[in-house]
Amino acid sequence: MLGNQEVAEALLEKFGDQVFDFEEPYGLLTLSTNRGEIISLLEFLRDHKTYQVMFLTDLTGIHYPDAQDKEFMVVYHLHSFIHNFRIRVKVSIAEADIHIPTATGLFACANWMERETYDFYGILFDGHPNLTRILNIEEMDYFPMRKEYALEDATREDKIDALFGR
């Protein structure tokens, strides 16, 4: 079975200091990379002769409003069926320059997942064939999963968070 250590070393050797923040939360190899390297990293993992991490399980976004110049994060979950090996890759991007290259060239399923991420966070995937809203209405003029949009009406006074355990 393929170990986290082995893949981490191979990635360090190939990408050097472009891959960083290695972690293993609950045994899942997690690492970060830069926007410029993400596509070549995904391609390296997919086309690697022995690893064959060829399945994009999930792609999603996260909003960290307090992180300076790293307000948004795109998270890729990949899976190698041959070795039953999962890996999580994270890319942080700044709100001022909210662009990231698309993975649709590597995985057909990235299409809708990227549209969903755009729909909820406004992250722009450069080179995407059809980057439009997917679940929300087209006329919507904001990105609802961003943290600044409270779920409930902020003007209501009868719903005090402390009383509702939030």
Binding site: T57, W112, R166
Partner: peptide, 27 residues
């Protein structure tokens, strides 16, 4: 799949559902 990020609070900081139908319906 359930992708859950907890920041130590009472509710998830981020929860993402990997919904199989959503992903394969694009084919």
């Amino acid at each position: 799949g359930f992708y859950l990020i907890s920041d130590g609070g009472r509710a998830p900081y981020r929860l993402h559902f990997r919904r199989p139908s959503f992903i394969y319906y694009q084919a």
